[in-house]
């Protein structure tokens, strides 16, 4: 047997990985080769010393007195437990966010849209009158009056108030968040609508925007 192979086998032997038959062969070689025998002795002792040096028990130190390992290791446990971040439960929804980014984005989008929409809807409680011809319209408190015999050219829109129509409206009449009173003499050429629901209001805004864009 070559010494090179023998050295490799020595290591295998020390790793507990050398098959029995090879162990016998190695021993035969060691008996015949004093150089390898010495090397093997050195390796065995290295192994034993290193093993002993590393497995030698060490104690985990407490602040002042090193000693009883049970006490000090318990205090290390405490130190570790104290360093942990508190309330891991809190991270539950963060995990959800991480796992479902699309759902989260959609939810945030819907939330923002809803709030801005509700803010727009509930924004004004003031009386707003709009139209192209308001010259003859009379406003009395929260009531918008189109007196008898008067003719309003174009549309008339009343928000947050009552509309009392006695005369003639040539265009559409729209009442938002209010009430409409039509006298027998009233005449509305265009459409006549009352809007009180958020959805109706939205629809109105959308159609108005779209028709505004169309012209």
């Amino acid at each position: 047997m070559e010494c090179k192979v023998a050295i490799l086998w020595m290591h295998e032997y020390l790793d507990d990985d050398l098959p029995r038959d090879d162990v016998i062969q190695l021993k035969e070689h060691l008996l015949s080769c004093p150089e390898c025998r010495m090397r093997f002795e050195q390796l065995k002792r290295t192994e034993a010393f290193a093993q002993a040096a590393i497995t030698e028990r060490i104690t985990i130190p407490v602040a002042a007195s090193a000693g009883r390992s049970a006490v000090s290791s318990a205090s290390l446990t405490n130190r570790i437990m104290q360093k942990l971040p508190q309330q891991r439960r809190k991270q539950g929804w963060m995990r959800f966010v991480r796992n479902h980014p699309a759902v989260t984005v959609a939810a945030v989008f819907v939330f923002v849209m809803m709030t801005s929409f509700l803010a727009m809807w509930g924004q004004s409680s003031e009386l707003i009158v709009s139209g192209s011809d308001l010259q003859h319209v009379v406003i009395d408190g929260d009531t918008v009056i189109v007196p008898a015999g008067v003719q309003v050219n174009g549309d008339l829109t009343v928000e947050n108030g009552r509309a009392d129509i006695r005369g003639e409206v040539q265009g559409n009449l729209t009442v938002i968040d209010g009430s409409l009173q039509l006298a027998s003499t009233a005449k509305i050429v265009g459409e006549n609508r009352e809007i009180n629901q958020a959805l109706d209001w939205l629809w109105f805004k959308v159609t108005k925007t779209v028709s505004g864009l169309a012209y």
Partner: peptide, 9 residues
């Protein structure tokens, strides 16, 4: 192991 052996020789 060889490294240690040499150091400890």
């Amino acid at each position: 192991r060889e490294f240690l052996r040499k150091k400890l020789e």
